[in-house]
Nucleic acid binder design. Structure first.
Lengths: 350, 350
DNA sequence: ACGAACTCGGAGAGCGCTTTCCGAAGTGTT
DNA sequence: AACACTTCGGAAAGCGCTCTCCGAGTTCGT
């Protein structure tokens, strides 16, 4: 109970307290702390000294209330109306995708002293509340994780003039900032690699057609295959989880026993496919060559290690953070989107 | 530009606006919105109607400023003074551990309408600011992710009376809420399984000795081994990443070529060990039996699938959230800790 | 019919901070 | 020495909300 410099008991010290200790007014302390205008250097020191002695820490809430700046951005994750006991969310968070994005965002935000607040929005009502909170200055802006299917959120955000950046392009064209990967190009890379390897019977395990990233990969792959004379690509749809990949592989194998090449729309499903292939007694890459997508940690961990299309998610997320910060600083700035070029990372599976 | 019900342009509507539309005072609107005291049912409806028409959403900041409740909890991740370009954080976020915890926390917090704000704290200064922010009511409480090594943070939190829950016990005894796994028991499970399988030369790949969870696993494993006559367990230390597991395995194999059993302190390192073993031409489990720890998604994905000690992280995180919420509601409540019992999940690797 | 007891809504004082507006000094010019 | 300028600190008005008072209106007991 011996009160040290920080007088840890009782309420946190306020500007008023510091002002009293320093023998000046609240306004002056505020100026010193925010480095505004030229305050007499002598007073300046007196104030900082008082700050130190009282252990004063500015109250962000109060500050935000008047400045209308919170130093926080929201990370919006859309929970597509999952049923209550559907573990969709856990699955999503456990997916390397989420972690990589958070890591990328933080690498930039942290340097700017900006915080990240996780927001899950599912229902129509949730969206309304989110927008309301953002308009009220609950956060300065939002990073929206790639939305499944068509979602009114992007439009709502732009309509209300809320600084926002999407990771993954919106399903419908909306004038909003976003970063994305050239998914079609990525799929093309995969197709050409498989073809160059001499595969003749090539199949695909795709993601849900409603998500743009997924449909781009599908169309990109189909297009390059068609260009090389493969008008028809047997395809089974998964949902980006390992289990769905395994199941899809079985289905595909049942209808196309001759398969010798495979493009899988993400590494997690590729992992599942690998298992199904092994169970079926097919060797990878000797019997079936396989190209994944993402270059997540799973790709390196897999045996055989996955040849995969690299998506620099961390960089993309970091760029999204930068874009958002810029847009917050200058809301009138032009809407911009940056598209990353994928790269094929050749390992063992193809 | 046709202004719909929400009048999306201009500033967000305030209580004052609603009051004007409803023809009552601010106070009454506030009462209606918060359901306080009995307001005349007729007025009640009038007010809600006005709320609907104006599209009013309460300003959390302003509300928090006076109520001293934010409806937000901080998720504190300690960045042990990593060097600037050390990708430690990215690694950490990409680890399934992070995602599982976030998922578990959100499952509970979401239902209570509580938000999660990510906080990374590294330096001494960062800790001070964190505490300051918390005392100021930046968040109602904190969930602290298992800290590497001895950290003053838990003590600082309790000293300042900030509701907090640790995930993973503190390195030094501190009267603070925490949830943890009976790590020693888990290691014992692994040891006994390996022994029962008939392994004679058993080694261990451990995590960093400074983190409590890690040291508990080490001591638990050593103890049971000793009890069964194995006084000496060859051990190599890793840092919980797959790469470190692979390297550790090589080292271990070099000094103990006779090895036929192995306990690895987490699944990610086990994955790495699996690779090193394969490269060395050892079959798992025939030549070397291996038990991992965590039962993360990696365990199922591995081939052979990992026999591992299950740590119900999602449940633990959910419980942490509940504990925190309870502690926030009643700060005088007793400090409590709940320890989860691990379970051995037998798959293929042992 | 009169006061006590109760119900309900408004006025207003803050929560901790920023920021405009002013007046009091200080500086330099003619 | 009188003027215009500039510099600097304080007073005070909010930011949007909650919540304690308090007064007015209603109901009921006697």
């Amino acid at each position: 109970m011996c009160y040290k410099s920080g007088m840890p008991s009782g309420r946190a010290p306020t500007l008023e307290d510091v002002a009293r200790v320093a023998g000046v007014s609240r306004a002056t302390v505020s100026r010193v702390i925010n480095g505004i205008r030229n305050v007499d250097p002598q007073l300046h020191d007196v104030v900082w000294d008082a700050v130190g002695r009282t252990g004063y820490v500015p109250n962000r809430l109060a500050r935000s209330l008047v400045t209308r700046r919170t130093g926080t951005v929201a990370l919006v994750v859309s929970d597509s109306e999952s049923h209550d006991d559907d573990p969709f969310m856990s699955r999503f968070f456990a997916d390397p995708y989420f972690g990589r994005v958070v890591g990328g965002l933080m690498s930039v935000l942290r340097a700017s002293g900006v915080q990240l607040a996780l927001q899950i929005v599912g229902t129509e009502d949730g969206r309304k509340r989110l927008i309301g909170d953002l308009r009220n200055g609950q956060a300065d802006g939002a990073v929206v994780l790639s939305l499944p299917a068509v979602d009114p959120l992007p439009r709502m955000l732009t309509d209300d003039g809320i600084p926002a950046v999407l990771i993954g392009r919106p399903a419908e064209p909306v004038p909003i900032n976003y970063v994305d990967l050239a998914n079609e190009t990525g799929a093309t890379l995969a197709a050409e690699h498989l073809l160059a390897r001499g595969c003749r019977q090539i199949g695909m395990i795709s993601g849900p057609a409603e998500v743009p990233a997924s449909s781009d990969r599908i169309s990109g792959f189909r297009r390059s295959m068609a260009k090389h004379g493969h008008a028809w690509v047997p395809t089974v749809t998964g949902n980006f989880t390992q289990e769905s990949g395994e199941a899809a592989m079985r289905t595909l194998l049942a209808s196309n026993p001759e398969l010798d090449g495979l493009f899988v729309a993400n590494d997690l499903m590729a992992l599942g496919a690998l298992l199904a292939l092994r169970d079926a007694g097919r060797r990878v890459p000797q019997d079936v060559a396989m190209v994944g997508f993402d270059d997540s940690s799973a790709a390196v961990a897999a045996r055989p290690a996955l040849t995969t299309v690299r998506q620099p998610l961390e960089d993309m997320a970091a760029e999204a953070a930068r874009l958002l910060l810029a847009h917050i600083d200058d809301p009138s700035g032009r809407v911009s989107s940056v598209i990353y070029e994928p790269k094929l990372v050749v390992r063992q599976s193809a």
